[in-house]
């Protein structure tokens, strides 16, 4: 998937940029002034480009002991509950998309940037656009869960604990 692959590339870019700054500053007396902005920007890209894939493979953080028990004892009710949860999650991602879209339009119109002029600046609108598209993709994946009901049988351990 394109979003996933590009999100993955950003991780590599992140490692490269920060190391470049360390070396350029330490050895060549030429720090890269955009390091902070590029790092911030890549965080948004990593998170929102990867999130749909996390949802697709069913690895979003949850505690599904009760749901698993329900599925075994009362398969129909269990499925109904799982669908309800995915529907609510889809609704939440729609809310995110609805909240972010006007932000994107505004940033696009005003060409708003972050950073310090003359030092380093980067435009806001790509950030907002990525979040909007990500929220749309996440919605699609939650809805797909309802129609396929797969991918949520593996243990969920993504919050890194």
């Amino acid at each position: 998937m394109a979003a996933n692959a590009s999100g993955t590339l950003v991780v590599v870019v992140l490692i490269a940029v920060v190391n470049y700054d360390i070396i350029a500053r330490g050895i060549f007396n030429k720090p890269f002034h955009g390091a902070v902005e590029v790092v911030q920007f890549s965080m948004v890209l990593i998170v929102f480009l990867q999130l749909p894939d996390v949802i697709r493979v069913g690895r979003l953080t949850r505690s599904d002991g009760f749901l698993t028990v329900m599925r075994h004892r009362r398969p129909a009710a269990g499925r109904w509950m799982a669908n309800g949860i995915d529907a609510m999650s889809a609704l939440f991602m729609v809310l995110v998309a609805v909240a972010i879209w006007p932000e994107f339009l505004e940033m696009w119109d005003t060409k708003d940037y972050f950073g310090v002029p003359g030092v380093f600046t980067a435009p806001w609108w790509p950030v907002k656009l990525v979040i909007f598209l990500s929220a749309c993709l996440c919605t699609v994946h939650f809805i797909l869960h309802i129609f396929t009901r797969t991918g949520d049988d593996i243990p969920h351990q993504e919050s890194g604990s």
Partner: peptide, 20 residues
């Protein structure tokens, strides 16, 4: 290497979405 990076991306996205 690619798998490691994808795994990193997944974990990061899941944690940061939770934090958000």
């Amino acid at each position: 290497f690619w798998e490691t990076v994808i795994e990193t991306g997944h974990i990061t996205a899941a944690i940061l979405f939770l934090i958000t």
